[in-house]
Design a protein around this nucleic acid. Sequence first.
DNA 1: TGTACATCAGTGAACGCGCGTTCACTGATGTAC
DNA 2: TGTACATCAGTGAACGCGCGTTCACTGATGTAC
Lengths: 205, 205
Amino acid sequence: MPKRGYHHGNLRQALVEAALKLVEEKGPAGFTLSEAAREAGVTPAAVYRHFEGREDLIAEAARQGYEIFADLMDYAFQSGQPSALASFEATGRAYLAFARKYPGHYVAMFESGISVNRTPELAVVAARASAVLEKAAAALSEHIPPEKRPPAAMFSAHIWAMSHGVVELFARGAPGRTAPFPPEELLESGIGIYLRGMGLIPPDS
Amino acid sequence: MPKRGYHHGNLRQALVEAALKLVEEKGPAGFTLSEAAREAGVTPAAVYRHFEGREDLIAEAARQGYEIFADLMDYAFQSGQPSALASFEATGRAYLAFARKYPGHYVAMFESGISVNRTPELAVVAARASAVLEKAAAALSEHIPPEKRPPAAMFSAHIWAMSHGVVELFARGAPGRTAPFPPEELLESGIGIYLRGMGLIPPDS
DNA sequence: TGTACATCAGTGAACGCGCGTTCACTGATGTAC
DNA sequence: TGTACATCAGTGAACGCGCGTTCACTGATGTAC
């Protein structure tokens, strides 16, 4: 990207992207404000025109991540309609796809240690992401007789946990950990067994 | 602990414990060699009598963690005998218990970014930990008809992922994340549903 | 029991480094007339 | 179309800081005689 002149033009977003790149390459600890500035072709001091400081910059990167994440999950959910089961499975797969496609965002969101309540905007968009998952779980719950139906929040927490665990342990550069199976396969089969346990998939398939 | 004289007496272990404390309190990034030395009442340079450097110190902390972890899981597995199901469930619970009881070790092992292959000793003990889980899975697999029996490694990876996900998302100080349910309950119900999906628990219980 | 001496754990000063942040500034841009 | 001027994005130098690591050293410990 050609840098012309004194004014950058779109420094704010360029800094976010530099941060994402660094955080992806070097992990959450390897990221520094100075290096992000350097990456964007700008003095460290210039960062302060757009962000309050280092933390604020990662928080914005995470916020954009949650935004994409929620959109992606929501889209996956829609695209499985009208079958609740297909919607749900698509949503689970979207989780892993997100981690793969946006590793920088993923790190900023889940591994950088920034609190989801750091800013109101972050909290809002993170809540939206949870809500999408929970919506999918609720839709699927309809197919379970009410007396054996678990709370949708628990249901979605299980799937989220399994997805997150697969990503952290086996998909991301989990340094040196041996992945016994491709993460996609692991997640798919895991969710399948879980749903069968729920009585949502016939026992023999 | 009273520090007497010029010689510390047990500096190596004191440093590991200082590192664990710091890593628990401030996260993996907040840990510095200098502060660990200070904590142990010693000059930073003294650390180099016992470790090659910062990384090496965390690696040792992680190694001790895997040791405890493997012992704990193995003990849990034994204590559930002769019932394979009880053994397996105890092993799952032990995972969460470990994360709760040894948060510093947990961080060093899973969040500090050190590779499990960093040193041969680390690799050995980490492999032992996986083996315990897999042993539990294999024992339980016996109760599944061979033609629908999944590989034990996959089985144990599912449980590991679910446990890890629950810990990361809902049990540890996951900053600001709202835990919809107590992690113990979440994990227990999740594993229960999964095992039912496996046909290892009667569908109605 | 006492002395000489080797060992080696820990000292303290020093290093170079890159960090985050501040400040007064400068130069490009865009608007008013 | 041209000029004056306000705005404000980015500069560059400076700061204090704590870091990890090195080095020649010192003083405690334990062993040989």
